[in-house]
Amino acid sequence: MKNKYTPTALALYFNYFVHGMGVIILSQNAANLAHQWGTTETGALAVVSSLGIGRIINLLVSGVLSDKFGRKPFVQLGIVTYFIFFVGILISPNTVIAYILGILAGMANSFLDTGTYPGLMEIYPNSKGTSNVVLKAFISAGQFFLPFIVSFLAATHMWYGWSFLIPATILVITFLYFMFGGAFPDSNSTSKTVEEKITNNNVKTNLWLDGTLFIIYGYISQATFYLVSQMLTQYGQKIGNLPQVAAHSLVSWYSLGSIICVLTTAALGKKFSEIQFVPVYTLGAFISLGLMWIYPTNANLMIILSLLVGFFAAGGVMQLALTVMAEFFPAGKGTVTGFFYTAGSIASFTIPLAINWIGNMRNVMLFDVIIALIGFIDTSLIAMRYKKMFGKLGK
């Protein structure tokens, strides 16, 4: 709390609390929005895909510009764009306008990413991984609370639009904070220490080798947890022959594992560096998924493995890997954020196609195991490069 930029960090975290709501707010209000737009619930849910399109459109560009013009303008731009989405959806007359607003929401997420992740790494240079992983906790908190808000509004027969105006109000508060203050560290000065470490070891970052390894993992990390999160219930029912309630509970255990990992990483962040976590977590994901593929019919084991997969694959390892990538390329934190998350966004588009093409749930799980293995190999190579560059593996 002695850090003078802590209020800025808190405002950044609350933006991601709102983002957590934004990710699921259309699906949570699908019935009401379908009535508003004169379409079916399926038609309303189709608008959700627009967020992914918007995210890809400007990630790379905003990342490069964030390094050039600073973090604050892109955080502010993200807040304004998200605000337009939340308010605009409530007055949108049809799915076409809603789809355009959804694209804006995806772009808002990209603006926030390229301003926030680098910004937090510069605010907390000695706890970069922990500060970024905590973002995931705020996203999860937003996703946790919104369904309760929606349910409360429905139960009390209140207007569903309040579920949009509540996050919009939070954005107004954070925007005013950044307008009248909200200072960020100088992004150029905070990168010099890491650059000096690399120079002192007489090893230069290999743009193509190191960049490719990280971009591959940007895709792999998203694909690994996206696959299992989308098919876990079906896998438990169709392959594991679990009762419906037990199969659905696997997702809850998976989510719990993710939350536990965030807390664990935050607690251990002072003792271990990000590069020490990443290969361990990717190995844990591979082993857990492998056991889930081998023993799908053991209900108790499936519960434990679901928790472990959530811990190792969805508990912040993606954010940790991004933090390590920023150490390799300290002068371009915004740029690397753009490239890294673009790879992840591509995974979100291509993995559903792979699931449909493979078809059989057991083979889909095997596919996820293979992807997780590639992820472990990839992060092990990154760890080797890190040791060569910095002379040691860890703090």
Rank of each mutant, 00 (worst) to 15 (best):
Phe145Cys: 12
Leu146Thr: 15
Phe148Gly: 05
Val150Arg: 01
Val150Leu: 07
Ser151Arg: 09
Phe152Pro: 01
Ala155Lys: 07
Ala155Gln: 09
Thr156Ser: 03
His157Trp: 11
Trp159Lys: 07
Gly161Pro: 01
Ser163His: 01
Ser163Asp: 07
Leu165Thr: 13
Ile166Glu: 01
Pro167Ala: 06
Ala168Asp: 12
Leu171Met: 14
Leu171Gln: 12
Val172Ile: 15
Ile173His: 08
Thr174Cys: 02
Phe175Arg: 03
Phe175Asn: 02
Phe178Asn: 02
Phe178Asp: 01
Met179Lys: 14
Phe180Leu: 11
Gly182Met: 10
Gly182Tyr: 10
Ala183Thr: 15
Phe184Cys: 10
Phe184Trp: 13
Ser187Val: 14
Ser187Gln: 08
Ser189Glu: 15
Thr190Phe: 07
Val194Leu: 11
Val194His: 09
Glu195Gln: 14
Lys197Glu: 11
Ile198Asn: 03
Ile198Asp: 02
Asn200Trp: 07
Asn202Met: 00
Asn202Leu: 00
Thr205Asp: 00
Thr205His: 09
Asp210Arg: 05
Gly211Arg: 05
Thr212Tyr: 00
Ile215Asn: 03
Ile215Glu: 01
Tyr217Met: 08
Gly218Met: 06
Thr224Leu: 00
Thr224Trp: 08
Phe225Asp: 04
Phe225Thr: 13
Phe225Arg: 06
Leu227Gln: 04
Ser229Trp: 10
Ser229Asp: 03
Ser229Met: 09
Gln230Cys: 04
Thr233Phe: 11
Thr233Gly: 06
Thr233Asn: 06
Tyr235His: 07
Gly236Glu: 04
Ile239Pro: 02
Leu242Ala: 04
Leu242Glu: 06
Leu242Gly: 00
Gln244Val: 15
Val245Thr: 15
Val245Ser: 07
Ala246Met: 05
His248Ala: 13
His248Asp: 11
His248Met: 10
Ser249Trp: 10
Val251Tyr: 15
Val251Gly: 00
Ser252Gln: 11
Trp253Lys: 08
Tyr254Ile: 13
Ser255Leu: 12
Ser255Pro: 12
Gly257Leu: 05
Gly257Trp: 13
Ser258Val: 14
Ser258Trp: 12
Ile259Asn: 03
Ile259Pro: 04
Ile259Gln: 06
Cys261Ser: 03
Leu263Asp: 09
Thr264Asp: 00
